[in-house]
Nucleic acid binder design. Structure first.
Lengths: 208, 208
DNA sequence: TCGGTTCTGTACCGAACGATACGCAAGTGG
DNA sequence: CCACTTGCGTATCGTTCGGTACAGAACCGA
């Protein structure tokens, strides 16, 4: 992932790769939070200095949003991939299990991006927070659509309220991510997934 | 709640009520987070000035912990009160429903205290964060004990793993609180509680 | 009235923050 | 070689942060 040089533009070419720098910034933001990530932290991790950062990304807030966009895009693909499983149940279970695997992986960068970081008083601008809320809603919407389809397909009882069930699993996702960030062990969280999935609404039979 | 004057100590008496000031500080911390709450915010809300704050509470970190202690104590009492319900099911349901009511109440101060605030990179000291983790574990332990008792009482099937079930509902609590902080509507969250409680393990019958 | 002690209020400290001005380096087309 | 354009790097801006020194005010016991 070196720098992308087209060789046509005038002026001195950029000496770093924007995507790699964004990825580095994302890791810093994920590790330290919005306010906790100082410009010095960011520039050091990105391997560039301050004015280059401002020239390339405009702003700390703007940089955060661009880093987040990169993460959210990858995350959205992962969600879609999971939910593409043959049944909604498998899809949701994959989403939860792989989510736990990622969130408890110390190498995984973007823990708090979709779940919690941009809260009130973290210094992020109001637009950024609204943007995050929008991005977060995408996951919930995807869950909602997949579950609604499962109801239509007959995988779930016709009495199922897709919105409620989607919200339910979305709350679990956020709770899992939060607990992971608090240092919860992967095995404990996976057992929560077990309990959550064990209670997936059955078509007709009991699910004792 | 005015100042408590014993009239025996020498020196100039304190002109403010420590408890009231702590409560005010708690509201500020809850609203803006640890770093987001500046000393100016705090002193203004508490109605005192900086040196008084330092003389009375020692430190920003120390102030935070004392404010948190006050909140956690009230919270722990509430948890115990809820879980004292005749059945564990009623207790957990009360805990979730009243939790949602509190967290979505804009007047309620301490939303993020037990759930999320003191994360990495928020500026809080490592000891404070460990302290918070400990306090958070208290709720989970209470849940665990109550559910274990319910298993012993025969309210829950003997095959129930109390630890797993407690962790499950604790994750839901955290997810609900998190979503509330993201601006989730009370009715939506209550419907999540419905789904979560609807799937409380039945003794023997099916729970379609 | 007078030490002794404790709190209050102003004014300030050094450090770190986000953000920028400006001169130099490194490329382009002519 | 030469304007011209663009990114790089140093050095610095003004602000805000958490934390304090210091002087005066308000209470005690004698």
């Amino acid at each position: 992932m070196g720098k992308i040089l087209t060789g046509n533009e005038p002026g001195r070419p950029r000496s770093f790769c924007v995507e790699a720098a964004l990825a580095a910034a994302m890791r810093v933001f994920a590790a330290k939070g919005y306010e906790g990530a100082s410009l010095s932290d960011l520039t050091e991790a990105m391997g560039i200095n301050r004015p280059s950062l401002y020239a390339a990304f405009g702003n700390k807030d703007s940089l955060f949003r661009q880093a987040m966009d990169q993460y959210v895009q990858a995350g959205a693909e992962h969600v879609a991939e999971c939910l593409a499983a043959p049944t909604a149940r498998e899809g949701v279970e994959r989403l939860l299990r792989e989510g736990v695997a990622r969130w408890t992986d110390p190498e995984w960068p973007g823990l708090c991006f979709v779940t919690q970081m941009p809260l009130q008083g973290t210094g992020a601008s109001i637009e950024t927070r609204l943007d995050m809320a929008e991005k977060r809603a995408i996951v919930e919407q995807a869950l909602k659509r997949r579950i609604a389809q499962a109801v239509a397909d007959g995988e779930l009882p016709r009495s199922t309220d897709a919105d409620d069930l989607a919200r339910f699993y979305f709350v679990i996702i956020q709770g899992l991510a939060l607990q992971a960030q608090h240092g919860g062990a992967a095995e404990d969280l996976l057992s929560v997934v077990d309990v959550a999935m064990q209670r997936w609404p059955a078509r007709a039979a009991a699910d004792a």
